[in-house]
Design a protein around this nucleic acid. Structure first.
Lengths: 242, 242
DNA sequence: TTCATACTTCGATGCTAACCGAAGCATCGA
DNA sequence: TCGATGCTTCGGTTAGCATCGAAGTATGAA
Protein backbone atom coordinates (compact mmCIF):
# COMPACT_ATOMS: atom_id res chain seq x y z
CA UNK A 1 0.00 0.00 0.00
CA UNK A 2 2.81 2.34 0.87
CA UNK A 3 6.30 2.69 -0.51
CA UNK A 4 9.26 0.86 0.89
CA UNK A 5 10.17 -2.57 2.23
CA UNK A 6 7.90 -4.79 4.26
CA UNK A 7 8.80 -4.99 7.91
CA UNK A 8 5.80 -7.01 8.96
CA UNK A 9 7.00 -10.29 7.47
CA UNK A 10 10.18 -10.35 9.52
CA UNK A 11 8.35 -9.02 12.52
CA UNK A 12 5.78 -11.78 12.48
CA UNK A 13 8.50 -14.39 11.98
CA UNK A 14 10.25 -13.15 15.10
CA UNK A 15 6.97 -12.43 16.84
CA UNK A 16 6.09 -16.01 17.69
CA UNK A 17 7.59 -17.03 21.06
CA UNK A 18 8.63 -20.47 19.85
CA UNK A 19 10.42 -19.07 16.82
CA UNK A 20 11.98 -16.29 18.89
CA UNK A 21 13.41 -18.87 21.28
CA UNK A 22 14.82 -20.88 18.39
CA UNK A 23 16.45 -17.81 16.88
CA UNK A 24 17.87 -16.80 20.23
CA UNK A 25 19.31 -20.27 20.62
CA UNK A 26 20.84 -20.11 17.16
CA UNK A 27 22.46 -16.79 18.05
CA UNK A 28 24.78 -18.99 20.09
CA UNK A 29 26.45 -19.82 16.78
CA UNK A 30 26.24 -23.58 16.99
CA UNK A 31 24.37 -25.52 14.34
CA UNK A 32 21.44 -27.20 16.06
CA UNK A 33 19.15 -30.02 15.01
CA UNK A 34 15.40 -29.79 14.78
CA UNK A 35 15.02 -31.95 17.87
CA UNK A 36 17.34 -29.75 19.91
CA UNK A 37 15.54 -26.62 18.77
CA UNK A 38 12.18 -28.17 19.61
CA UNK A 39 13.52 -28.82 23.09
CA UNK A 40 14.74 -25.29 23.71
CA UNK A 41 11.46 -23.89 22.44
CA UNK A 42 9.42 -26.30 24.50
CA UNK A 43 7.31 -27.65 21.64
CA UNK A 44 6.90 -30.96 19.86
CA UNK A 45 8.93 -31.95 16.86
CA UNK A 46 6.07 -31.51 14.41
CA UNK A 47 5.45 -27.94 15.48
CA UNK A 48 9.15 -27.18 15.40
CA UNK A 49 9.39 -28.54 11.88
CA UNK A 50 6.64 -26.22 10.76
CA UNK A 51 8.32 -23.23 12.37
CA UNK A 52 11.70 -24.08 10.92
CA UNK A 53 10.39 -24.28 7.40
CA UNK A 54 8.76 -20.89 7.82
CA UNK A 55 11.98 -19.39 9.09
CA UNK A 56 13.82 -20.91 6.16
CA UNK A 57 11.56 -19.58 3.43
CA UNK A 58 11.71 -16.27 5.27
CA UNK A 59 15.46 -16.30 4.77
CA UNK A 60 16.35 -16.16 8.45
CA UNK A 61 17.92 -19.61 8.74
CA UNK A 62 19.49 -22.26 6.51
CA UNK A 63 19.75 -25.99 6.91
CA UNK A 64 22.45 -28.50 6.11
CA UNK A 65 21.63 -32.18 5.78
CA UNK A 66 24.14 -34.51 7.31
CA UNK A 67 23.20 -38.14 7.69
CA UNK A 68 19.79 -38.31 9.20
CA UNK A 69 20.24 -35.04 11.02
CA UNK A 70 19.39 -31.60 9.76
CA UNK A 71 21.51 -28.86 11.19
CA UNK A 72 20.07 -25.38 11.30
CA UNK A 73 22.02 -22.15 11.53
CA UNK A 74 21.26 -18.48 11.12
CA UNK A 75 21.33 -17.61 7.44
CA UNK A 76 23.74 -14.80 7.73
CA UNK A 77 25.62 -12.23 9.82
CA UNK A 78 22.82 -9.78 9.13
CA UNK A 79 20.29 -11.99 10.88
CA UNK A 80 22.52 -12.17 13.93
CA UNK A 81 22.81 -8.40 13.93
CA UNK A 82 19.04 -7.97 13.76
CA UNK A 83 18.42 -10.43 16.59
CA UNK A 84 21.12 -8.94 18.78
CA UNK A 85 19.76 -5.46 18.09
CA UNK A 86 16.27 -6.48 19.11
CA UNK A 87 17.64 -8.14 22.23
CA UNK A 88 19.36 -4.91 23.17
CA UNK A 89 16.17 -2.98 22.66
CA UNK A 90 14.14 -5.48 24.63
CA UNK A 91 16.63 -5.58 27.49
CA UNK A 92 16.72 -1.81 27.65
CA UNK A 93 12.94 -1.65 27.85
CA UNK A 94 12.83 -4.31 30.52
CA UNK A 95 11.14 -6.90 28.33
CA UNK A 96 12.64 -9.79 30.27
CA UNK A 97 9.73 -12.13 30.59
CA UNK A 98 12.06 -15.07 30.99
CA UNK A 99 13.53 -14.39 34.39
CA UNK A 100 17.28 -14.19 34.09
CA UNK A 101 19.02 -17.17 35.59
CA UNK A 102 22.23 -17.55 37.55
CA UNK A 103 24.23 -17.88 34.37
CA UNK A 104 23.72 -14.21 33.80
CA UNK A 105 27.03 -12.85 35.17
CA UNK A 106 29.00 -15.29 33.03
CA UNK A 107 26.96 -14.32 29.98
CA UNK A 108 27.54 -10.69 30.64
CA UNK A 109 31.29 -11.20 30.90
CA UNK A 110 31.84 -13.15 27.68
CA UNK A 111 29.54 -14.96 25.31
CA UNK A 112 29.10 -15.94 21.70
CA UNK A 113 27.15 -13.60 19.45
CA UNK A 114 26.42 -15.83 16.46
CA UNK A 115 30.08 -16.29 15.50
CA UNK A 116 32.05 -13.66 17.37
CA UNK A 117 32.84 -12.55 20.91
CA UNK A 118 30.32 -10.44 22.83
CA UNK A 119 29.82 -9.17 26.36
CA UNK A 120 32.29 -7.24 28.46
CA UNK A 121 35.24 -8.94 26.80
CA UNK A 122 33.86 -8.38 23.32
CA UNK A 123 33.43 -4.66 23.92
CA UNK A 124 36.85 -4.52 25.53
CA UNK A 125 38.40 -6.17 22.48
CA UNK A 126 37.09 -3.50 20.11
CA UNK A 127 37.89 -0.70 22.56
CA UNK A 128 41.45 -1.86 22.81
CA UNK A 129 41.92 -2.23 19.05
CA UNK A 130 40.56 1.26 18.52
CA UNK A 131 42.62 2.79 21.32
CA UNK A 132 45.89 1.47 19.94
CA UNK A 133 44.75 2.46 16.45
CA UNK A 134 44.71 -1.01 15.01
CA UNK A 135 41.23 -0.30 13.69
CA UNK A 136 39.90 3.02 12.46
CA UNK A 137 36.74 4.31 10.88
CA UNK A 138 33.32 5.63 11.62
CA UNK A 139 29.95 4.00 11.93
CA UNK A 140 29.89 0.71 10.07
CA UNK A 141 32.89 1.73 7.99
CA UNK A 142 35.69 0.06 9.89
CA UNK A 143 39.05 -1.05 8.57
CA UNK A 144 42.36 -2.35 9.84
CA UNK A 145 45.20 0.15 9.88
CA UNK A 146 48.69 -0.86 8.82
CA UNK A 147 49.55 -1.53 12.44
CA UNK A 148 46.40 -3.57 12.87
CA UNK A 149 47.16 -5.62 9.78
CA UNK A 150 50.61 -6.57 11.03
CA UNK A 151 49.26 -7.31 14.52
CA UNK A 152 46.65 -9.70 13.15
CA UNK A 153 49.11 -11.35 10.82
CA UNK A 154 51.49 -11.86 13.75
CA UNK A 155 48.66 -13.60 15.58
CA UNK A 156 48.41 -16.04 12.71
CA UNK A 157 45.25 -14.71 11.10
CA UNK A 158 45.13 -15.15 7.35
CA UNK A 159 43.87 -11.72 6.32
CA UNK A 160 44.04 -12.25 2.54
CA UNK A 161 41.76 -15.26 2.97
CA UNK A 162 39.29 -13.19 4.99
CA UNK A 163 39.35 -10.44 2.38
CA UNK A 164 38.37 -12.93 -0.31
CA UNK A 165 35.12 -13.78 1.45
CA UNK A 166 32.09 -11.82 0.41
CA UNK A 167 31.52 -10.63 3.97
CA UNK A 168 32.95 -7.45 5.45
CA UNK A 169 36.15 -8.04 7.43
CA UNK A 170 35.43 -5.54 10.18
CA UNK A 171 31.97 -4.70 11.35
CA UNK A 172 30.28 -3.49 14.50
CA UNK A 173 27.51 -5.25 16.34
CA UNK A 174 25.48 -3.75 19.17
CA UNK A 175 26.03 -5.60 22.42
CA UNK A 176 22.77 -6.02 24.27
CA UNK A 177 24.27 -6.35 27.73
CA UNK A 178 26.81 -3.56 27.38
CA UNK A 179 24.78 -1.34 25.04
CA UNK A 180 27.94 -0.59 23.10
CA UNK A 181 29.59 -1.91 19.97
CA UNK A 182 31.76 -4.97 19.71
CA UNK A 183 33.68 -6.38 16.76
CA UNK A 184 31.81 -8.48 14.24
CA UNK A 185 32.57 -9.47 10.64
CA UNK A 186 34.94 -12.14 9.44
CA UNK A 187 37.75 -10.75 11.59
CA UNK A 188 35.56 -10.96 14.68
CA UNK A 189 34.84 -14.56 13.82
CA UNK A 190 38.50 -15.35 13.17
CA UNK A 191 39.56 -13.87 16.50
CA UNK A 192 37.03 -15.90 18.47
CA UNK A 193 38.15 -19.05 16.66
CA UNK A 194 41.73 -18.15 17.53
CA UNK A 195 40.95 -17.80 21.23
CA UNK A 196 39.23 -21.18 21.27
CA UNK A 197 41.97 -22.87 19.24
CA UNK A 198 44.67 -21.54 21.51
CA UNK A 199 42.80 -22.95 24.47
CA UNK A 200 42.41 -19.53 26.05
CA UNK A 201 38.69 -20.02 26.37
CA UNK A 202 36.03 -22.70 26.11
CA UNK A 203 32.37 -22.72 25.26
CA UNK A 204 29.95 -23.74 27.98
CA UNK A 205 28.02 -26.80 26.81
CA UNK A 206 24.41 -25.58 26.82
CA UNK A 207 24.77 -21.84 26.88
CA UNK A 208 26.11 -18.94 24.93
CA UNK A 209 28.60 -18.29 27.71
CA UNK A 210 32.34 -18.46 27.12
CA UNK A 211 34.65 -19.27 30.00
CA UNK A 212 38.22 -18.02 29.86
CA UNK A 213 40.95 -20.09 31.49
CA UNK A 214 43.35 -18.47 33.94
CA UNK A 215 46.23 -18.20 31.53
CA UNK A 216 43.88 -17.42 28.66
CA UNK A 217 42.51 -14.43 30.52
CA UNK A 218 46.02 -13.18 31.24
CA UNK A 219 47.07 -13.53 27.63
CA UNK A 220 43.91 -11.86 26.39
CA UNK A 221 44.28 -8.87 28.69
CA UNK A 222 47.95 -8.53 27.82
CA UNK A 223 47.23 -8.66 24.10
CA UNK A 224 44.32 -6.26 24.24
CA UNK A 225 45.07 -3.74 26.99
CA UNK A 226 42.69 -0.97 27.86
CA UNK A 227 43.96 2.60 27.64
CA UNK A 228 44.25 4.63 30.80
CA UNK A 229 41.51 6.90 29.52
CA UNK A 230 38.96 6.34 26.85
CA UNK A 231 39.93 8.22 23.67
CA UNK A 232 36.49 9.74 23.45
CA UNK A 233 34.56 10.59 26.52
CA UNK A 234 31.19 8.99 26.49
CA UNK A 235 28.39 8.95 28.97
CA UNK A 236 27.79 5.57 30.53
CA UNK A 237 24.53 3.93 29.75
CA UNK A 238 23.42 0.99 31.77
CA UNK A 239 20.60 -1.20 30.63
CA UNK A 240 17.65 -1.31 32.96
CA UNK A 241 17.55 -4.69 34.63
CA UNK A 242 14.13 -5.88 35.63
CA UNK B 1 12.21 -20.38 29.60
CA UNK B 2 15.67 -19.35 28.47
CA UNK B 3 17.98 -16.61 29.63
CA UNK B 4 17.97 -13.16 28.13
CA UNK B 5 15.51 -10.56 26.91
CA UNK B 6 12.30 -11.30 25.11
CA UNK B 7 12.37 -10.54 21.42
CA UNK B 8 8.98 -11.98 20.63
CA UNK B 9 6.99 -9.13 22.16
CA UNK B 10 8.52 -6.50 19.91
CA UNK B 11 8.45 -8.86 16.98
CA UNK B 12 4.76 -9.49 17.29
CA UNK B 13 4.10 -5.77 17.69
CA UNK B 14 5.89 -5.07 14.44
CA UNK B 15 4.60 -8.27 12.87
CA UNK B 16 1.07 -7.10 12.21
CA UNK B 17 0.81 -5.41 8.79
CA UNK B 18 -1.43 -2.61 10.04
CA UNK B 19 0.91 -1.78 12.90
CA UNK B 20 3.94 -2.06 10.65
CA UNK B 21 2.41 0.46 8.26
CA UNK B 22 1.69 2.83 11.11
CA UNK B 23 5.23 2.57 12.41
CA UNK B 24 6.64 3.10 8.94
CA UNK B 25 4.49 6.19 8.56
CA UNK B 26 5.69 7.50 11.91
CA UNK B 27 9.29 7.01 10.82
CA UNK B 28 8.58 10.09 8.72
CA UNK B 29 9.01 12.04 11.93
CA UNK B 30 5.72 13.91 11.86
CA UNK B 31 3.25 13.49 14.68
CA UNK B 32 0.13 11.89 13.21
CA UNK B 33 -3.41 11.58 14.51
CA UNK B 34 -5.23 8.32 14.98
CA UNK B 35 -7.45 9.06 11.99
CA UNK B 36 -4.47 9.71 9.73
CA UNK B 37 -2.77 6.54 10.87
CA UNK B 38 -5.94 4.55 10.31
CA UNK B 39 -6.00 5.90 6.77
CA UNK B 40 -2.42 4.95 5.97
CA UNK B 41 -2.96 1.50 7.41
CA UNK B 42 -6.22 1.04 5.57
CA UNK B 43 -8.32 0.13 8.60
CA UNK B 44 -11.19 1.66 10.52
CA UNK B 45 -10.71 4.03 13.38
CA UNK B 46 -11.76 1.49 16.00
CA UNK B 47 -9.18 -1.03 14.88
CA UNK B 48 -6.50 1.62 14.68
CA UNK B 49 -7.27 2.72 18.21
CA UNK B 50 -6.76 -0.80 19.45
CA UNK B 51 -3.45 -1.11 17.61
CA UNK B 52 -2.21 2.23 18.85
CA UNK B 53 -2.89 1.36 22.46
CA UNK B 54 -0.95 -1.86 22.03
CA UNK B 55 1.97 -0.02 20.51
CA UNK B 56 1.87 2.45 23.36
CA UNK B 57 1.93 -0.07 26.19
CA UNK B 58 4.70 -1.82 24.25
CA UNK B 59 6.72 1.37 24.51
CA UNK B 60 7.09 1.90 20.78
CA UNK B 61 5.04 5.09 20.50
CA UNK B 62 3.83 7.92 22.71
CA UNK B 63 0.82 10.16 22.41
CA UNK B 64 0.25 13.81 23.11
CA UNK B 65 -3.26 15.13 23.62
CA UNK B 66 -3.92 18.48 22.01
CA UNK B 67 -7.48 19.66 21.86
CA UNK B 68 -9.62 16.88 20.56
CA UNK B 69 -6.74 15.38 18.59
CA UNK B 70 -4.26 12.82 19.77
CA UNK B 71 -0.91 13.06 18.12
CA UNK B 72 1.22 9.94 18.00
CA UNK B 73 4.98 9.80 17.53
CA UNK B 74 7.66 7.17 17.85
CA UNK B 75 8.64 6.89 21.50
CA UNK B 76 12.28 7.34 20.97
CA UNK B 77 15.32 7.45 18.69
CA UNK B 78 15.88 3.79 19.47
CA UNK B 79 12.56 2.82 17.94
CA UNK B 80 13.44 4.67 14.76
CA UNK B 81 16.75 2.84 14.64
CA UNK B 82 15.08 -0.53 15.01
CA UNK B 83 12.52 0.22 12.31
CA UNK B 84 15.12 1.52 9.87
CA UNK B 85 17.29 -1.50 10.60
CA UNK B 86 14.47 -3.87 9.81
CA UNK B 87 13.65 -1.93 6.66
CA UNK B 88 17.23 -2.28 5.51
CA UNK B 89 17.14 -5.98 6.15
CA UNK B 90 13.81 -6.40 4.40
CA UNK B 91 14.90 -4.34 1.40
CA UNK B 92 18.10 -6.34 1.10
CA UNK B 93 16.17 -9.60 1.15
CA UNK B 94 13.70 -8.33 -1.41
CA UNK B 95 10.76 -8.25 0.97
CA UNK B 96 9.07 -5.46 -0.93
CA UNK B 97 5.48 -6.54 -0.93
CA UNK B 98 4.30 -2.98 -1.35
CA UNK B 99 5.53 -2.23 -4.84
CA UNK B 100 7.76 0.81 -4.78
CA UNK B 101 6.15 3.78 -6.48
CA UNK B 102 7.51 6.56 -8.66
CA UNK B 103 8.42 8.57 -5.58
CA UNK B 104 11.30 6.22 -5.04
CA UNK B 105 14.16 8.21 -6.64
CA UNK B 106 13.29 11.23 -4.54
CA UNK B 107 13.14 9.10 -1.41
CA UNK B 108 16.49 7.59 -2.19
CA UNK B 109 18.05 11.01 -2.64
CA UNK B 110 16.89 12.64 0.60
CA UNK B 111 14.25 11.77 3.12
CA UNK B 112 13.38 12.05 6.78
CA UNK B 113 14.39 9.20 9.08
CA UNK B 114 12.28 9.88 12.18
CA UNK B 115 13.90 13.24 12.93
CA UNK B 116 17.08 13.42 10.89
CA UNK B 117 18.27 13.36 7.29
CA UNK B 118 18.58 10.04 5.45
CA UNK B 119 19.19 8.80 1.94
CA UNK B 120 22.06 9.76 -0.34
CA UNK B 121 22.31 13.21 1.21
CA UNK B 122 22.20 11.85 4.74
CA UNK B 123 25.05 9.46 4.08
CA UNK B 124 26.95 12.19 2.29
CA UNK B 125 26.56 14.47 5.29
CA UNK B 126 28.22 12.00 7.65
CA UNK B 127 30.87 11.07 5.10
CA UNK B 128 31.83 14.68 4.70
CA UNK B 129 31.95 15.42 8.42
CA UNK B 130 34.17 12.39 8.93
CA UNK B 131 36.44 13.19 6.00
CA UNK B 132 37.18 16.67 7.24
CA UNK B 133 37.55 15.31 10.75
CA UNK B 134 34.69 17.22 12.28
CA UNK B 135 33.46 13.95 13.74
CA UNK B 136 35.58 11.06 14.98
CA UNK B 137 35.04 7.77 16.70
CA UNK B 138 34.26 4.15 16.10
CA UNK B 139 31.04 2.21 15.98
CA UNK B 140 28.34 3.99 17.92
CA UNK B 141 30.92 6.01 19.83
CA UNK B 142 30.95 9.23 17.83
CA UNK B 143 31.90 12.68 19.01
CA UNK B 144 32.53 16.13 17.61
CA UNK B 145 36.17 17.16 17.34
CA UNK B 146 37.27 20.65 18.25
CA UNK B 147 37.00 21.64 14.60
CA UNK B 148 33.55 20.10 14.38
CA UNK B 149 32.40 21.94 17.48
CA UNK B 150 33.41 25.31 16.07
CA UNK B 151 31.88 24.48 12.69
CA UNK B 152 28.53 23.61 14.25
CA UNK B 153 28.60 26.67 16.47
CA UNK B 154 29.33 28.85 13.43
CA UNK B 155 26.24 27.35 11.80
CA UNK B 156 24.19 28.56 14.73
CA UNK B 157 23.67 25.25 16.48
CA UNK B 158 23.43 25.49 20.25
CA UNK B 159 25.68 22.61 21.25
CA UNK B 160 25.51 23.16 25.03
CA UNK B 161 21.72 22.87 24.78
CA UNK B 162 22.04 19.60 22.85
CA UNK B 163 24.49 18.25 25.39
CA UNK B 164 22.02 18.87 28.19
CA UNK B 165 19.44 16.55 26.63
CA UNK B 166 19.50 12.98 27.78
CA UNK B 167 20.02 11.73 24.23
CA UNK B 168 23.40 11.16 22.59
CA UNK B 169 24.51 14.10 20.46
CA UNK B 170 26.09 12.06 17.68
CA UNK B 171 24.87 8.66 16.66
CA UNK B 172 24.82 6.48 13.58
CA UNK B 173 21.73 5.07 11.94
CA UNK B 174 21.74 2.45 9.20
CA UNK B 175 20.32 3.83 5.97
CA UNK B 176 18.10 1.24 4.31
CA UNK B 177 18.48 2.58 0.80
CA UNK B 178 22.23 3.19 0.94
CA UNK B 179 23.08 0.36 3.33
CA UNK B 180 25.52 2.66 5.07
CA UNK B 181 25.47 4.88 8.14
CA UNK B 182 24.12 8.36 8.34
CA UNK B 183 24.13 10.83 11.22
CA UNK B 184 21.48 10.48 13.91
CA UNK B 185 21.23 11.77 17.47
CA UNK B 186 20.33 15.24 18.61
CA UNK B 187 22.91 16.79 16.28
CA UNK B 188 21.40 14.97 13.30
CA UNK B 189 18.03 16.34 14.31
CA UNK B 190 19.38 19.86 14.80
CA UNK B 191 21.02 19.83 11.37
CA UNK B 192 17.85 18.77 9.58
CA UNK B 193 15.92 21.46 11.42
CA UNK B 194 18.57 23.95 10.35
CA UNK B 195 18.25 22.98 6.68
CA UNK B 196 14.49 23.36 6.81
CA UNK B 197 14.65 26.64 8.74
CA UNK B 198 17.12 28.13 6.29
CA UNK B 199 14.77 27.23 3.47
CA UNK B 200 17.36 24.99 1.83
CA UNK B 201 14.91 22.12 1.72
CA UNK B 202 11.23 21.38 2.19
CA UNK B 203 9.28 18.34 3.23
CA UNK B 204 6.97 16.78 0.65
CA UNK B 205 3.42 16.86 2.01
CA UNK B 206 2.49 13.17 2.17
CA UNK B 207 5.82 11.43 1.98
CA UNK B 208 9.08 11.05 3.79
CA UNK B 209 10.84 12.70 0.85
CA UNK B 210 12.75 15.95 1.27
CA UNK B 211 13.17 18.24 -1.71
CA UNK B 212 16.17 20.55 -1.78
CA UNK B 213 15.84 23.91 -3.50
CA UNK B 214 18.39 24.96 -6.11
CA UNK B 215 20.28 27.31 -3.85
CA UNK B 216 19.79 25.00 -0.89
CA UNK B 217 21.47 22.18 -2.75
CA UNK B 218 24.39 24.43 -3.69
CA UNK B 219 24.83 25.59 -0.11
CA UNK B 220 24.60 22.07 1.24
CA UNK B 221 27.19 20.69 -1.15
CA UNK B 222 29.51 23.61 -0.48
CA UNK B 223 29.21 23.21 3.28
CA UNK B 224 29.62 19.44 3.22
CA UNK B 225 31.99 18.61 0.37
CA UNK B 226 32.98 15.06 -0.43
CA UNK B 227 36.65 14.18 -0.36
CA UNK B 228 38.35 13.24 -3.61
CA UNK B 229 38.75 9.72 -2.32
CA UNK B 230 36.99 7.93 0.48
CA UNK B 231 39.24 7.76 3.57
CA UNK B 232 38.62 4.06 3.93
CA UNK B 233 38.04 1.86 0.97
CA UNK B 234 34.89 -0.08 1.28
CA UNK B 235 33.16 -2.48 -1.03
CA UNK B 236 29.93 -1.20 -2.49
CA UNK B 237 26.81 -3.00 -1.50
CA UNK B 238 23.63 -2.29 -3.38
CA UNK B 239 20.30 -3.39 -2.08
CA UNK B 240 18.43 -5.85 -4.23
CA UNK B 241 15.43 -4.14 -5.72
CA UNK B 242 12.51 -6.40 -6.46
C1' DT C 1 15.51 -57.42 6.05
C1' DT C 2 14.17 -55.38 10.19
C1' DC C 3 14.18 -52.02 13.55
C1' DA C 4 15.27 -47.45 15.31
C1' DT C 5 16.07 -42.67 14.80
C1' DA C 6 15.24 -38.11 12.67
C1' DC C 7 12.26 -35.53 10.51
C1' DT C 8 8.16 -34.12 7.44
C1' DT C 9 3.36 -33.99 6.03
C1' DC C 10 -1.53 -34.32 6.86
C1' DG C 11 -5.63 -33.46 9.36
C1' DA C 12 -8.26 -31.86 13.15
C1' DT C 13 -8.75 -28.81 17.09
C1' DG C 14 -8.76 -24.86 19.71
C1' DC C 15 -7.26 -20.37 20.85
C1' DT C 16 -6.04 -15.87 19.81
C1' DA C 17 -6.41 -11.61 17.66
C1' DA C 18 -7.79 -8.65 13.97
C1' DC C 19 -11.81 -6.60 12.47
C1' DC C 20 -16.00 -3.75 12.35
C1' DG C 21 -20.80 -2.02 13.99
C1' DA C 22 -22.76 0.39 17.59
C1' DA C 23 -22.62 3.01 21.50
C1' DG C 24 -20.22 6.03 24.78
C1' DC C 25 -17.04 9.85 26.19
C1' DA C 26 -14.51 14.19 25.48
C1' DT C 27 -13.54 18.51 23.19
C1' DC C 28 -14.63 22.35 20.31
C1' DG C 29 -17.52 25.85 17.94
C1' DA C 30 -21.81 28.26 17.60
C1' DT D 1 -27.34 24.01 24.91
C1' DC D 2 -26.81 21.67 20.70
C1' DG D 3 -24.46 19.54 17.12
C1' DA D 4 -20.10 18.07 15.06
C1' DT D 5 -15.69 15.98 15.35
C1' DG D 6 -12.12 12.81 17.24
C1' DC D 7 -11.41 8.96 19.57
C1' DT D 8 -12.27 4.91 22.87
C1' DT D 9 -14.77 0.91 24.58
C1' DC D 10 -17.77 -3.08 24.09
C1' DG D 11 -19.57 -7.16 21.82
C1' DG D 12 -19.75 -10.54 18.41
C1' DT D 13 -17.89 -12.57 14.24
C1' DT D 14 -14.41 -14.47 11.53
C1' DA D 15 -10.02 -15.98 10.03
C1' DG D 16 -5.60 -17.43 10.72
C1' DC D 17 -2.31 -20.07 12.94
C1' DA D 18 0.01 -22.57 16.53
C1' DT D 19 -0.42 -26.97 18.34
C1' DC D 20 -0.36 -31.96 18.50
C1' DG D 21 -1.76 -36.95 17.10
C1' DA D 22 -1.11 -40.04 13.52
C1' DA D 23 0.84 -41.53 9.47
C1' DG D 24 4.54 -41.27 6.00
C1' DT D 25 9.57 -40.77 4.30
C1' DA D 26 14.56 -41.09 4.69
C1' DT D 27 18.86 -42.53 6.76
C1' DG D 28 21.58 -45.54 9.59
C1' DA D 29 22.47 -49.64 12.40
C1' DA D 30 21.95 -54.59 13.42
Amino acid sequence: MKEGPDIAQIGSLIGDPARANMLTALTGGKALTATELAGTAGITLQTASSHLSKLEVGGLITQRKQGRHRYFTLADDDVGLIIEGLMGFAAYRGFTRHRTGPKDPALRKARVCYNHLAGDYGVRLLDSLVAEEAIAGVGDKLALTQFGTSKMTALGIDLPALAKLRRPVCRTCLDWSERRSHLSGSLGQALLTLFLDKGWAKREPDSRAIRFTGTGEKEFLKLFPLPAQSPIERRHEHAVEA
